[in-house]
């Protein structure tokens, strides 16, 4: 396969623990990667995609992502995103993006109050964006979730906007694509994007679904969307 010549920059906060999985996943797809520390005040100039990886950040004190939004690197992220740069937040990265106001809504404690770690089915709701363009609308994928605060909340007005602008990316479902809500999220939402469709956030982990041997390779088609400049 021809190397796509894509540079993926991955943020690392104290407590991030999915940066190396994310790096491995994107390198498997042919990207060049660089992990940068949260104290960095700029992003590598050749960045094509910025990923805020999963795990924890600053102990998730106060609220998940609440302290991380003030990390020195986040100013550079906000600037990069405002110029149309592509940003993907996975799990804790999604929480950081909502706390920073780069994505709408908020993530609450799971309704069951339990940490949930398992493979879950998801239905593709809107594929008119680079992240999910390799997947058909209404197709069902199966990838891992692992979170305590994954209960997506948005008020009715915000929900209406999400729907009007095709910002809902994925919903938690069963294997037939029927709603099955593991954590209490409004309308079973698992991931959203911003109105401009360059900032993406989701609780499930596509970078942990790259090998059929490990349960699923449905993450490949998701991340591949970013492999074209």
């Amino acid at each position: 396969m021809q190397k796509p010549n894509i540079k993926v920059t991955i943020l690392q906060f104290p407590g991030t623990n999915c940066e190396y999985d994310t790096q491995h996943a994107f390198e498997e797809l042919g990207a060049t990667t660089e992990i940068i520390w949260h104290k960095s005040e700029s992003l590598p100039k050749d960045t094509n995609l910025l990923v805020i990886a999963g795990g924890f950040s600053y102990g998730d004190y106060l609220r998940s992502g609440a302290i991380a939004k003030f990390a020195p690197v986040m100013k550079a992220v906000t600037h990069y995103a405002s110029e149309g740069g592509k940003v993907l937040g996975i799990c804790n990265g999604f929480q950081v993006l909502t706390e920073a106001g780069l994505l709408p809504g908020a993530l609450k404690r799971n309704e069951s109050l339990h940490f949930i770690s398992k493979h879950h089915h998801l239905r593709v709701v809107n594929n008119d964006n680079v992240f999910l363009e390799k997947l058909a609308n209404d197709s069902v994928i199966h990838i891992p979730i692992a979170h305590h605060d994954g209960n997506y909340f948005i008020d009715q007005k915000g929900l209406k906007e999400l729907k009007n602008n095709n910002q809902i990316l994925l919903k938690y479902t069963d294997k037939n694509g029927e709603i099955q809500n593991p954590n209490g999220s409004v309308e079973s939402i698992a991931g959203v994007c911003n109105k401009e469709k360059n900032i993406f956030g989701l609780m499930p982990h596509p970078e942990r679904a790259m090998e059929t041997l490990l349960g699923s390779n449905d993450g490949v088609k998701m991340l591949q969307g970013f492999m074209e400049a």
Binding site: F70, A106, F153
Partner: peptide, 8 residues
């Protein structure tokens, strides 16, 4: 700015 998340 920090102590509360006024979305929720």
């Amino acid at each position: 700015e920090l102590l509360a998340n006024t979305v929720i």
